[in-house]
Design a protein around this nucleic acid. Structure first.
Lengths: 341, 341
DNA sequence: GCTGTTAACGAAAACGTCTTTGTAAAATAA
DNA sequence: TTATTTTACAAAGACGTTTTCGTTAACAGC
């Protein structure tokens, strides 16, 4: 077992000073050619690599970025993460991931831990707990300390920082508009409780599209779940007692479960009933029929978030100006929708 | 913007020495009650938190673990990651994730970068590139330096370290045995090239089960893809020219795509043809019919990997003994299989 | 009053790196 | 030869902690 070698070892071994070694390895003009050669050769032979921690302490820069997300077992977040990791890595940054598990407390603890020097900046999506509680002090404290922060997807107006979101309202609007153009009249919405900013916006887009096309906005056509948990019973009840010819769902799972149920009931998709789901993930792609989806462009989102963050980290500017980048969602058409006029 | 405060600041402000502050904050008996009180109050007021980097440098312990996986947009890896993160976090460790993207070079670069002091140990699954190349020098170097390493799922015998795998052979064996018990005779295998250790083991279990039950092992019943890429055409060809009443697939996607095709062809699942897929993920659960799956217990695997690693990190032992933990897969029965006798 | 003990704190080194400043000797200029 | 500039390196401080080892001053015991 050969332990890591340090500047001090090399210096002692070669009978020179530490500073000489340091400079020689940076190819400084200050050091004589012969000495430089000896030192570089020795360093190469013994595979010297500077210690990241020592450099971090010196430079007050860790080249790490902290990513805090509610859950990694969720296709959308993984694609965002991939975008972040990819961009960050290319820029020489490593990524520390913490899962808040939708819990406010975990989010706070993890942030505070990382904020004590471990990272140069944060990228995060708020946990459900935090959004419910509406308490953003942990974020304020971080930004007050001058640590850059970028929020994505699940954001809050109360926080002053860069943000990357998709235009959820527009996504829902596009989906409903497509339904209407396809001749659908009874358009249902499956959503979650409104403390998720995304659900709120999507519901707004749904309503707006109906009104803009002179269709009635009927609360009876809205199925609302309190959490992200799926409730088969509620789905059955809803589809048994509500007449519907199109369904927009704020996530894949609700859509797929609903499709399954109506198919079992004997309905044909898309002839009798049409479906669109948010978050174009694995399920949408491989469902039968394929589920038309509002793509969120997670990977792009991650890239942009990383880009914004690294820019903030690397350029010192006295007057902070925060931007919100809004991505346009795209409708990926598959077998679950078709013209029905 | 209030910058982070250090021991030095407190010391200067309160007119004491740095060491006194340090001791007071650790509640040392050495410091007088009055002084201790003043210092603690001041620290609390200004929200003093020790700098992680400085502590890391001092202790030569970062409390970070490095996780290198081929891809995060893959349900199995995300579940493993969740297990790791969960256990590590509970033990006070943070997790740095790097994606090798199935590339040997990326794996090497990321490892070398992290190995220079950023982490206390590694958990990883080998990239496809590494497995193809069979070059494990980067791993050897890391272990030679005394950095603990735990491999999971995609492992290699050549490397001396702790390992966590599932019994892929047994998983395939169980699946094929179920087919046989259900009265199936023409059991196909959909797999990938053999440089994936997992594919190799699964194929072996498949063969063994057939032989043990006096069924013929027929190469014609095996559809082999060169990569993880799906090839619709190959699937069509295979099912058009091969008579099959059961299919074991080494991953979900191949299984789902095949199910789709045979359903489109007019076959009934599971009456005419039965399916089992590896890696019980989202798709298996929400497919129609549900896909019977060999569950890999990713989260458990991650937990065990983290546990093994942290143990190695925390207890110094001169004689290294490496263990391989093998998890037993479980068959999750769903609609895609049923007794057909 | 002297020695020895203890309480309460400070100084300094160490972790590994980088960088500024210092200092010999050698080379050049006067 | 002497003064001045270069060359080539060494010393030291700093990043923020922790910890060991001093160092005072007060006080007890004789």
């Amino acid at each position: 077992m050969k332990r890591k070698i340090t500047l001090k070892h090399i210096a002692r071994e070669l009978g020179v000073s530490i500073s000489t070694v340091s400079k020689a390895l940076k190819n400084s003009e200050e050091i004589g050619a012969e000495t430089k050669g000896r030192i570089q050769a020795y360093a190469k032979l013994h595979n010297y690599k500077p210690n990241n921690i020592a450099i971090s302490l010196k430079n007050k820069r860790t080249k790490n970025i902290g990513v805090i997300i509610p859950d990694i077992v969720h296709h959308f977040f993984t694609t965002v993460f991939r975008g972040i990791e990819n961009y960050a890595n290319a820029k020489g940054y490593n990524v520390i991931v913490c899962l808040s598990d939708e819990s406010f407390d975990k989010e706070v603890i993890n942030m505070e831990l990382l904020a004590n020097g471990s990272i140069d900046g944060f990228i995060m999506a708020l946990s459900a707990g935090t959004q419910q509680k509406g308490d953003y002090n942990h974020l304020k404290e971080v930004t007050d300390q001058g640590i850059p922060l970028v929020l994505f997807d699940r954001v809050a107006d109360e926080i002053n920082c860069d943000k990357v979101v998709i235009n959820d309202r527009e996504g829902a609007y596009k989906a409903v508009t497509k339904f209407i153009k396809d001749g659908r009249k009874k358009i249902a919405l499956i959503t979650t409780d409104e403390h998720y900013s995304v659900s709120r916006d999507r519901a707004a887009g749904y309503k707006q599209a109906l009104l803009d096309h002179n269709l009635e906005y009927d609360e009876g056509l809205i199925l609302k779940f309190p959490t992200m948990e799926i409730d088969e019973k509620a789905i059955e009840d809803f589809f048994n007692k509500t007449e519907v010819d199109a369904v927009l769902s704020v996530n894949e799972i609700f859509a797929i479960a609903s499709m399954r149920f109506v198919q079992a009931k004997g309905l044909q998709i898309p002839e009798d009933i049409s479906f669109i789901g948010f978050t174009d993930g694995i399920l949408s792609k491989y469902a039968t029929p394929g589920l038309t989806a509002v793509a969120q462009h997670g990977e792009k989102m991650g890239e942009i978030a990383a880009q914004l963050l690294i820019e903030k980290i690397e350029v010192e500017v006295e007057e902070e100006i925060y931007v919100t980048r809004m991505l346009e969602p795209t409708l990926i058409e598959r077998g679950s929708t078709r013209n029905n006029k």
